[in-house]
Computed example of a mutant assay.
Amino acid sequence: MTGDPTRHVVVMGVSGSGKTTIARGVAEATGLEFAEADAFHSAANIATMERGIPLTDEDRWPWLRSLAAWMDAKADDGISTIITCSALKRTYRDVLREGPPSVDFLHLDGPAEVIKGRMSKREGHFMPASLLQSQIDTLEALEPGESGMVLDLGQRPEELIERALAWLDIAPAESSVAP
């Protein structure tokens, strides 16, 4: 492990809020290693959601622990990360914090109508729009003591990425700096 501390960022919010777009933008600007939390779901979890059934906490615990373990392994290797994860409840975020030394959260939040519109346009995703309300009902806002900020998903992605970068205060990656 290198002597420099690593940073670990979770872009959170309900499905369709734009987590992947913002996380990829921050990763490209900073060099943080990107991971899509959906790729860590078990086949059983994906099948459950495809059938329009919300996941239970019991379904989510192994998934959340695998994300925390991935971030922790990257921290051990001296690699900073950014992942997408709904992280809907404080208890879920607590599990994510069990991995690396510290985790910052960027919460993408906005009107359900905007999110529904986005979900209706995307193709090939296992999460149906019919589960959106269950996620909205489950969502717990960031609490005092949690390192994070709320971003209004009504803003353009470029603006959200700029705000996230300013709050995170991470130096740009060498490849993203103009010569």
Rank of each mutant, 00 (worst) to 15 (best):
M1C: 13
T2I: 13
D4K: 15
T6L: 08
R7A: 13
V9E: 08
V9P: 07
V10N: 00
M12V: 11
G13A: 03
V14W: 04
V14A: 14
V14K: 07
S15L: 05
S15K: 12
G16A: 08
K19W: 14
K19A: 08
T20S: 15
T21I: 11
I22K: 04
I22V: 15
I22P: 02
I22Q: 03
A27W: 04
T30I: 00
G31Q: 03
L32M: 08
F34W: 12
E36L: 05
H41Q: 05
S42P: 02
A44G: 09
I46R: 13
A47Y: 00
T48A: 10
T48S: 09
M49V: 13
R51L: 10
R51H: 09
R51Y: 01
G52E: 09
G52D: 10
I53K: 01
I53N: 06
I53E: 13
I53P: 00
P54N: 03
P54L: 08
P54G: 04
T56R: 03
D57K: 09
R60G: 05
R60S: 02
W61F: 09
W61G: 04
P62T: 01
W63I: 03
L64P: 02
S66A: 15
S66E: 12
S66Q: 12
A68D: 03
A69E: 15
W70Q: 05
A73C: 05
K74F: 01
K74P: 00
S80P: 04
T81Y: 00
I82Q: 05
C85R: 04
T91R: 14
Y92S: 06
Y92K: 06
Y92F: 10
R93I: 07
R93C: 06
V95L: 10
L96I: 01
L96N: 01
L96A: 02
E98T: 15
P101C: 00
P101M: 08
S102E: 15
V103F: 12
V103D: 01
L106E: 00
L106R: 01
H107F: 15
L108W: 12
D109I: 11
D109R: 13
A112C: 08
E113G: 00
K116M: 13
K116N: 09
R118W: 11
S120F: 09
S120L: 13
K121D: 10
E123V: 15
H125F: 01
H125R: 09
M127T: 11
A129Y: 02
L131T: 07
L132K: 01
Q133C: 07
S134H: 05
S134E: 03
D137N: 14
T138Q: 10
L139C: 01
L139E: 06
E140I: 03
L142A: 06
G148P: 03
M149I: 13
M149R: 14
L151K: 05
D152K: 07
Q155R: 14
Q155T: 10
E158V: 12
E159T: 11
E159M: 09
L160K: 03
L160A: 05
E162A: 15
R163G: 05
R163I: 00
L165T: 00
L165R: 12
A166V: 14
A166E: 15
W167V: 00
L168V: 02
L168S: 01
D169F: 05
D169T: 02
I170Q: 07
A171H: 09
P172F: 06
E174S: 14
E174L: 14
E174N: 12
S175N: 12
S175T: 13
V177Y: 01
V177S: 07
P179G: 10
